[in-house]
Design a protein around this nucleic acid. Structure first.
Lengths: 151, 151
DNA sequence: TTCGCTGCAAATCCTTTGCATGATT
DNA sequence: AATCATGCAAAGGATTTGCAGCGAA
């Protein structure tokens, strides 16, 4: 997500361009794979703009969600985290997470193998699938190496 | 999950059999497809045992989680809900949810099509998959019928 | 009798809201 | 200048914790 695109979207929706909004979006864009919590976004932005308040971060996240620019994910550690969206892009539908049960590391990956499964659901359950969310829990490479005797 | 099995598990772990614990488990067993919140479990048990406290419900849920008898699910409405587990049974790995974006209805279904995908992940990402969680968002049959012009 | 379990109330954590001030258009 | 957005502090909701009393073993 480019800054100009974002500014254009704000304008289109009659919303004001503020430093806080830009910085929250940039925090989320800069580390796409970090899955930041609201608190982490707050700390990140505060480094560059110490006056920002946590409430503004929450309000901005909510705004970005409504604009379909970010989505929340819950990765098993009890925290709500936010990701910059791939919404609208064709990547959106193929974006999944691998979550390490040992170290908590999250690996994003893309795959569309579920297309076939969706088709079957559509037929068998009379349910029109719009989107799906898949999480795989297990052990990442480095944790496997470290504790080969453990599992 | 049968009551006797549960009592046996409690005994095996040196835990006491209490009316509260039995009733919480029964609330969760009786309506497997309801995905109750802590508050709903509380209300259900209270009908039969009005002295119970909400804290006990939370403590019992936590206990049941540690015993791998229940797991939490978050179905897009912002609430944390609990399901009696299929853990250990071969059903465990094939248990997914269809969530209606219109009415919020949740339909559980079982399918193991992801086996193949897991195999590919194991190879390509050097990640050992232990479990997975899949949610499909879309529109259920009755919502589709009602608003055929809407989507 | 012992020790774990419970209910209650208070504490905590995360998120939202009200309101006066400040910034953007 | 008008309006929207912000910071702060207070409110809200969900969950956890401390503690004295109760109940299962």
């Amino acid at each position: 997500m480019l800054r100009e695109d974002f500014e254009k979207i704000l304008k289109e929706h009659g919303l004001k361009k503020t430093r806080q909004r830009i910085l929250v979006l940039e925090a989320l864009s800069s580390c796409e794979d970090k899955h930041l919590t609201a608190e982490e976004i707050y700390e990140t932005v505060k480094a560059e703009f110490p006056e920002i308040g946590l409430a503004t971060v929450y309000r901005t996240i909510q705004l970005l969600s409504e604009l379909d620019l970010v989505e929340s994910v819950q990765l098993g550690d009890g925290c709500v985290r936010y990701e910059i969206g791939k919404i609208g892009e064709k990547e959106a539908h193929r974006h999944h997470h691998l979550i390490c049960l040992e170290c908590g590391k999250v690996i994003s990956f893309w795959d569309d193998l579920l297309e076939e499964l969706e088709e079957r659901i559509r037929e068998s359950a009379s349910f029109q699938v719009i989107n799906h969310e898949v999480k795989f829990y297990g052990y990442c490479e480095s944790c496997l190496k470290q504790g080969q005797e453990c599992q």
